[in-house]
């Protein structure tokens, strides 16, 4: 399975930070609390990435194929 990539719908994101709590392996937060995607989503991380996508209260995160 190929690696996936997380994309943020920036105008929708309100820095709630749940994505970081659910997926610290691939997401950090900047000084204002907005996500910094730090890497691609490997097959091992896909389950956690999907949980982060579902967990965003703003529905501002998407997992796309690279």
């Amino acid at each position: 399975m190929a690696n996936g990539r997380l994309r943020v719908d920036w105008p929708v994101c309100r820095a709630r930070g749940l994505c970081f709590e659910l997926l610290p392996e691939a997401i950090e937060l900047d000084e204002w609390g907005y996500p910094v995607v730090t890497g691609e989503i490997t097959p091992e991380l896909t389950g956690a990435a999907r949980a982060a996508v579902r967990g965003c209260p703003r529905m501002a995160l998407r997992l796309v194929q690279t």
Partner: peptide, 9 residues
């Protein structure tokens, strides 16, 4: 003023 990294950064 829509995207956090832009309006803060």
């Amino acid at each position: 003023g829509r995207c956090g990294p832009c309006f803060n950064g």
